[in-house]
Design a protein around this nucleic acid. Sequence first.
DNA 1: GTCTATACACAGATAGAC
DNA 2: GTCTATCTGTGTATAGAC
Lengths: 195, 195
Amino acid sequence: MKKGPPSATAVRILDVAQRLTQIRGFNAFSYADISRELRIRSASIHYHFPSKAALGRGLVARYRETFLACLGEILERAPRAPDQLRLYVGIWSGVLRQGHRMCLCGMMASDIATLPKAMREEVRRFFDENEAWLARVLAAGRDARELRLSAAPETEARLLAMGLEGAMLVARSYGEPARFDEIAARLLQVVGVKV
Amino acid sequence: MKKGPPSATAVRILDVAQRLTQIRGFNAFSYADISRELRIRSASIHYHFPSKAALGRGLVARYRETFLACLGEILERAPRAPDQLRLYVGIWSGVLRQGHRMCLCGMMASDIATLPKAMREEVRRFFDENEAWLARVLAAGRDARELRLSAAPETEARLLAMGLEGAMLVARSYGEPARFDEIAARLLQVVGVKV
DNA sequence: GTCTATACACAGATAGAC
DNA sequence: GTCTATCTGTGTATAGAC
């Protein structure tokens, strides 16, 4: 059931599809859009991803893996929980500024009712992993007296994860990333990060 | 520039279109979907709403008005800020339980890049009004010593508004309204509401 | 792997009869 | 106001040549 490494073209297709999904939504772009941008025919895209559902699965799977790798890097680069959380928020702030994108899975979540079952599960898995990572960071920070939590780490993790998704969603509709930063900073305050 | 009262059919069209938007998204339903449900031809829908953009504008405008009226009712029914905030959160919790819907404007926000300009402005106006109402309630509650704020009322208002949108988005993707309730309660705690 | 050509369904929209 | 009929564009997807 494991796939080989994706070809260079498959990667370029995923890159374009990911950007379009993050900006317009998974149901709001077509093979023709990718086709135009990559100067290959839509039939060629079908060669790499036989159906749009397959493309969607590839999209979320890769996003999940990439993101999880980023979270791992954060742990290596910053030893203290407050810094780890600032870097975490910084990722999303960067996404938002990178051409008014929003979290791929946040976009997928809004289309959840129209997605094939396999994709829904991948989207939830992304949220699960995010929350688990945050909960670990929060618990460690609390134990090290670097953070001050008012609730269970799991609850605070969800507060951050969901709060940041909402902040992205709304800030992006204004085209004002600063709106995100304001609320992200406030959310960090809530778990005891100085800002 | 003012329109007359919408006909009974127009109202039924808006009702169906609103539900479909809240569940699937504005770009993920068609005149044919409404047509099937109301047992009228799609040409008849075009009579009431010449274009989908017009339907969209009608949708957001009505939603904004209805919601603002609800907020007014809350102020009449509950004099204390903590109760007002609980009722506010209760509205969203109800939406989520009412057939896995989410905030109409939250859904529109995720499709923002594909919406006509007039619709975008209406969506932002909805968020503006929400934040303004929350900020007033929060400031009044703080002055009456019913709430404890750690930041400006406007900031806390955005925290709540954006946080609740995100909580709806994510909780709905799990089909678990309880996920929303958990974070909503935590958000209320942050502004000093006992839960 | 990429192409041309094409199938088929559905989208939003309009004309004109009733 | 609602209908039938129709137009035109676009969507995903496939067959088969190169």
